[in-house]
């Protein structure tokens, strides 16, 4: 069972690492928008690249967030039934509904890979006036979705451990570790 624990910890760490770096993109987006306003208003010469680059970064920022948020239980749900259930029953329920989660994310992963591969076959650019490559942003879709799927797998393993009293995962340890990040 050591392998499972290591896998779960590893994936959560990975998502944390990625998330903490991607989160900083908000400063970059802010800086570029401000720069554009400055160029246009002060120098009367808008750039061709700031708004488009900001938008591309925003796409990466948004799609890469899935796994990190999953790791921190940030995807909101309705807890009407959840809040009345004992942890084991809740875990059972989550195991069942995870089927819907995997249907969505795996379909997205499949076609995300397809889309990214297609885009990379021609090193697709945006064909705007600035014409930057956009394949990296398309590539972010399967990467971000993949991270989400992996974190979903971690969540599933946790639920299985709770539901069946398996000892490769103890919820309390995890909870303490979570505290540090908040």
């Amino acid at each position: 069972m050591g392998v499972l624990s290591a896998f779960m910890k590893g994936i959560t760490r990975l998502n944390d690492f990625v998330g903490r770096w991607i989160a900083l993109l908000v400063f970059v987006m802010f800086a570029f928008l401000l720069l554009e306003v400055g160029f246009r208003y002060l120098f009367n010469s808008p750039t061709v690249w700031t708004n488009e680059l900001t938008q591309l970064l925003f796409g990466v920022y948004a799609v890469m967030s899935g796994g990190y948020i999953m790791a921190h239980r940030g995807h909101v749900n309705v807890d009407l039934i959840h809040s009345h259930l004992a942890p084991r029953k809740r875990a059972f329920l989550d195991i069942i509904t995870s089927v819907v989660f995997f249907i969505f994310t795996l379909a997205l992963l499949w076609f995300g890979i397809d889309m990214a591969r297609d885009s990379m076959s021609s090193w697709e650019t945006s064909f705007s006036a600035w014409n930057p490559p956009i394949w990296p942003v398309k590539l972010a879709i399967p990467v971000g979705t993949g991270l989400l799927v992996l974190q979903g797998l971690v969540k599933l393993l946790e639920d299985i451990a709770i539901a069946f009293n398996l000892d490769y995962y103890r919820p309390s340890e995890q909870a303490e570790e979570e505290e540090e990040y908040l």
Partner: peptide, 25 residues
């Protein structure tokens, strides 16, 4: 050349090249 023009694609390149300030909105 003192114009700020909302444009896109090839025309944005053209208008910029021609000396106007073309931006995408």
């Amino acid at each position: 050349t003192s114009l700020k023009i909302r444009s896109s694609g090839a025309l944005q390149t053209f208008l910029t090249e021609a000396g106007a300030a073309a931006s995408y909105i």
